[in-house]
Structures are given as C-alpha cells and as structure tokens.
Design a binder for these strands. Structure first.
Length: 597
RNA sequence: GGACCUGUGGUGCAGCUUGGAGUGCACGCCGGCCUGUCAAGCCGGAGGUCGCGGGUUCAAAUCCCGUCAGGUCCGCCA
C-alpha cells in the first residue's frame, strides 16, 4: 500500500461493520443492494453537493466507512462538512449512473429527510487526497485532518496492530502492568523530560524514556511475564521517525531463554503484520551481528535482495596495487549496473568517501573475446589472475558493475553496506515482509573520550557466557546476550537478557567506569531489589510507530499519530509548549531567569 | 549546535534565474442558472502585509543581510 492508497475509506469488509446505533441505522459505507427498499438513517459529514436546479441535488454523505449518495429535493442550505442525519430509502441507481469508485456505488438514498445536526464553516483545506496540504495547516486543524481517508485508514490500522499485539501477548500468558509516568531521574542515556514537584520544591520527577527498570522490578516482584503498550518520552531532537513521545510494545519475562523471548516477540509482530496485510510473514531468519556486518555491512540487513558483500581480501594478498594494501577488501556486484554513466560512478565514489572510505574502485564487466574483461581506471594495476579471480568470486556477468572498498574491516563493510542499500533496496513498505533476528551484539560499542568502553545497549545487559573471562583483558570483543528484530532493513526494536547477579553487574559497571558509589546513587533501588531474589530475566521492546508507519506505507510517523508535534516540538493546534502563569510557577517553586536583551 | 530546502488570496501551484503596476492557473468560497451528477457543468463576484524586519535600487514577490515558521538530514536518541 502506498501513501494515500485507494484501499477505500475503511479497512472493513462487508459484515465487519460495528452495529449501528443511536441516530443511525447503518454506516454510510455498508449500504448495498441487499438493503434495497429499506428505510435507513445515516449520519455523517457533507462531503460534496451537486445541485441540478431547484428540485434535484446529490448529497454525498461521508462517515469513516465510506460515502453514500443521497438524492434530495434542493440542498442549497447545506454546505461542505455540515454534520447531517439523512433518513431515506435505499434505492437502485438508474441504469448507467452507477459509480464503481464507491463501495455504495450501486445504490443511493431516495425520499430523503435531511437533518442538520451541526453547521460548519468551510474547511480550512481540502480533504481530497489529491491535494497535498502543508503539514502545519493540517496539524493546526488536526480534528479536520483526521476526517481524511488517509488519517482514518492509518489510525484504524494502528488500532488493528495494537489489538493484535495485545491478543498475541495475552494468549501467551503475558500480563499487562502499568508503570509510572512520574519516574525518577537516571542521568544516563537520553535526555529526560523533567516534572517539577509542587510538594518538594527543587526536586523533580522525570517522564520515563522507557519502562526498562520498572519492568525489571516487576520480574523481581514475581510477575514472570509482563507486557505493556507503553508510552516512552525522550527529550531529543525530532525526526521523520522520532517524536518526543512514542509507543513501544514493552515485554519482559523471567526464567526464559533468549530464543524463547524472541519467539514470543516474533509471534506478536507476525500476528500484527498478518492482521494488517492479511498474509503471515515467513519465519524470521537469524544472523549474528558479526555475520550481518560481514555479509550486509549493517546491523539491520534488508534480506529482500541479494547483492551480498563479497570477501576479496585473499585475491589481492600479493597485489602491487597500493590502494588494495589494506586489512580488508570487500566488494559488491551490482547486476546490470555496468551501464551507469561516468557521472553516476563519480557520485558513488563521492558517496563512499562521505561515508568515510578512502575511495571506491568501480569496474564495469564487459564481454570480450575469450571471456570477460574489466573496464576500470585501475584495471591496469591488477594482474590477469587477480582480475579473473575477482570475476569468479563475484559471480560477475557481462553488464555488471563491481564496487570495491579496501579499508579496515568494519569500515569497508559499512560503506559497501550503505552502497548496497542505495543501489538495491526497495521501498520499505514493499513486500515481502522479511524479519530477521540479529543476535550476539557486542556488549560495548567503541570507547568514549577517556578510553572507556560504552554500553552498546544498556548497562544491565548480560554478557555472553562464553565471553565472561574476556571482560578485563579485551572488553570490546565481549558479545552480549542482546538482539534486534529487523524488518526489511528497519530496526523494529531491541532487547536483551539482563544481568541478575551482582558480581557480573559489578564487572560491567567497572568496565564502564561506573564506581560502586555512583552505581548505588543512580540505580541503587534496582541493585537493592536484586539483592532480594532476582530471577533470571530478559525482554524486548518493539517500536510501534515505525512498524505501523511501514505497514501503512507512510514515510513519516506523524502520519500514524493522531496528534503529533512538529520538528521543533510544537503543537500548532494547541500552541504547546506555552509559558506558565506566575501563580503556577510560584506553586512549583520555579523562577525563570530574566529574558536576555 | 550545524547543513540544505520551502514560505505568494482559504487550499495547491506558477511568477524569482534576467527587478518594472499583486500578473496568472486550478480548487475552494459567495450569488445566479441548471432534473442524473459523482472532483458535476455554465455565468458572475469577492478575497493579498508575496512569512516578518532591514538593506541595495528611480523601482523589490524577484537581488543581499537578518529573523521567524515548516520540512529533510548531521550531531543527539544508554
């Protein structure tokens, strides 16, 4: 489904409509020839009005489910977006006037009595999907925008996903537990939203960046399978795929192995995808982090297409080509890419350099007498045996384009992984839906300015048992029991087995440079809890806004959020954020610094 | 904190390169006509601080500087 797709106003099939009640006997979109002759009442908004003289007019009435045409005797007093109730008789349209574009296109309402329930000013922008209205206008009048087919479809799809996830988690015995929104500051990770305390001036709550610690405490509390559709809040800069507040399927389980937790998550995600697209995705593949980097040059590989990274280092072990005297040489074969003009190849080279590569070697594979030849500015620096080995290893055919990067292993892989995506990756919402678990992430991801390892996930992540003894000597090589779920190249979420033993936790804190005192002051309540009987546990969190956007064919999560913020964190509808009154500030014990200049 | 793009009646655009009267298109809005339309059609009309401020110029929607708002991205998001 592409944005603004033509799937219809509602994702409801006949028979799936809720039973109409109150002022209406039916929803607009459910009327069919099967109701011919019945007197019905529908309620909705006037979508359009077509007058044909004093005594004939067509009134299109819209609710979330669709549009139905009402034939009325004059409609001059009715205007767009008036809220009306129409009572009339379901009648067949005269032959030749059916409208196949409408689900109700075979019928219309006759002998209509129209009640205006609410008059309306003209809408501030067109609700027609063909007009691409400025987003700030849509957000200022979000309550109007929500009536559009796009927003109705997206938010109903969102509800379908949440519902499927809840059903799947509960079917597996997970218990929904609500955790506090007013939480305690934990100066670590993302910036937190602060809430001043009225009762204790100078002290603050923060809004949780995730329910991470609360859910782990639930494990200590004996609720061995927890889940929550949880709001998370992070005061970081906004992006197309990031809002201040976002929604996660948050999960934690005790006495479970890593593959078991993954199976529960995968089942829930697969149910959600199935509920939306009507087809169950194939089972997720598994790949280690190291292999994902090696074969796809990324920790979130898109498995819908090949073009895997090819290891070429041995081919050039004895090379005289200076640019290839590097620890690793990797290449990709872009099938049929050999026709690219020189300017395109220069663009690719620039792209590789901007990603940190020293350069990019491109080679066009061309047919020649007695086999294949390589056309490249640097071909002359390679021996015949190197060239033929390269062609064979790459599986290259005439017309292909070979791209090679020589550098440190990880950099070479990541540059080519990005080029692979640039050249071959289909739009994310194009099926098939390929899930992959990326497992065995490193425990630490690089070092900070002081040479300290940085936690790749969070400091409670359990190291891989086989790597525990390497913790002191070679911390950067220690693998973690942490894992990501990736859908078509998008990271859906991540999780880990947590540390529940204080001796291991101390080692990790030590590696991170967190002293015992510091750990106690920051996470004391968690470490304290672990002294009172902590079960082995682990969990996961799925970012739902992204998942829903992908399933809705939207590139921006604002399109699947009812009331989102702009990139500067403002809400054009309410005007938030706004100053507090002096009285409010006094009550909170806050005083603002004088305004500059 | 930074880079780039955008800002013109209610909406969507063109005009900006190469300065010359708020010029144009489509939708919407208001009035009229119209008995089978469905983005109905036809006729008429109203509606503008060209985001805002400053500069250059005889003259600025157009060129320059600043600023605000929106978007995309980098940084940031354990």
């Amino acid at each position: 489904m592409a944005p603004g797709g033509t799937a219809g106003y509602a994702a409801l099939a006949a028979g799936e409509f809720p039973k109409a009640a109150g002022l209406r006997s039916h929803y607009c979109g459910e009327l069919r020839p099967t109701q011919l002759g019945e007197q019905v009442s529908i309620c909705g908004w006037v979508a359009r009005r077509r007058e044909h003289g004093e005594h004939l007019a067509f009134l299109d009435v819209r609710d979330f489910s669709g549009i139905v045409q009402c034939v009325v005797d004059g409609a001059h007093q009715l205007r767009s977006e008036y809220v009306v109730r129409v009572t009339g008789t379901v009648s067949a349209r005269p032959e030749g006037t059916e409208n196949p574009a409408l689900s109700t296109g075979e019928i219309e309402l006759h002998d209509c009595a129209v009640e205006v329930l609410s008059a309306a000013e003209p809408p501030p922008f067109s609700l027609d999907a063909r007009v691409d209205t400025d987003e700030v206008v849509r957000l200022r009048y979000r309550y109007v925008d929500l009536r559009t087919e796009r927003m109705q479809k997206n938010l109903r799809l969102r509800a379908t996903v949440l519902s499927a996830l809840r059903r799947a988690m509960e079917a597996n015995g997970f218990l929904e537990i609500e955790t506090p929104l007013l939480w305690t500051p934990t100066p670590e990770g993302s910036r937190e939203f602060a809430i001043p305390s009225r009762l204790q001036h100078g002290s603050f709550y923060v809004l949780p960046q995730s329910p991470q610690i609360a859910k782990q405490l639930s494990m200590v509390g004996g609720f061995d399978r927890y889940y929550q559709i949880a709001r998370c809040l992070r005061d970081e800069d906004l992006r197309a795929d990031r809002q201040f507040e976002f929604t996660q399927l948050d999960v934690e389980g005790s006495f479970l192995t890593e593959p078991e937790i993954q199976a529960f998550i995968e089942q829930a995600v697969a149910e959600a995808i199935t509920a939306v697209v009507g087809e169950r995705p194939e089972a997720a593949s598994r790949i280690t982090w190291a292999e994902a980097i090696d074969r796809y040059g990324t920790d979130k590989p898109d498995l819908r297409f090949g073009m895997e990274l090819v290891e070429c280092t041995p081919i050039f072990a004895e090379t005289g080509f200076n640019a290839f005297k590097a620890p690793t040489i990797k290449g990709i074969c872009h099938q049929g890419g050999g026709g690219a003009p020189r300017t395109r190849l220069d663009q690719l080279t620039e792209r590789a350099k901007s990603l940190g590569a020293k350069g990019l070697v491109w080679m066009r594979v061309i047919a020649a007498e007695g086999g294949l030849e390589l056309d490249s500015p640097v071909a002359k620096f390679m021996s015949e045996s190197e060239k033929s080995a390269l062609i064979e290893k790459m599986g290259a055919k005439a017309g292909d384009l070979l791209l090679l990067v020589a550098d440190e292993h990880r950099l070479a892989c990541e540059v080519l992984g990005q080029l692979r995506n640039d050249l071959g990756r289909p739009p994310v919402y194009e099926g098939p839906w390929r899930l992959v678990w990326v497992v065995d992430f490193p425990l630490f991801d690089g070092v900070d300015e002081d040479g300290r390892p940085q936690a790749a996930h969070h400091p409670f992540t359990m190291p891989h048992p086989e790597d525990l003894e390497k913790m002191d000597a070679d911390p950067l090589s220690v693998r973690a029991q942490s894992y990501d779920l990736v859908l078509n190249g998008w990271e859906l979420g991540s999780g880990s087995i947590r540390i529940h033993r204080s001796d291991i936790q101390s080692k990790v804190f030590a590696a991170l440079g967190i002293s015992a005192e510091e750990a106690e002051s920051r996470f004391g309540f968690l470490l304290g809890a672990f002294r009172y009987g902590a079960p082995p546990h682990g969990g996961f969190a799925v970012g739902l806004d992204r998942l829903i956007a992908i399933l809705a064919g939207e590139e921006n999560i604002r399109e699947v959020i009812a009331f989102p913020k702009t990139q500067s964190g403002a809400d054009p509808m309410t005007g938030a954020p706004k100053p507090l009154t002096d009285k409010q500030l006094r009550e909170l014990g806050l005083r603002l610094p004088p305004k500059k200049d």
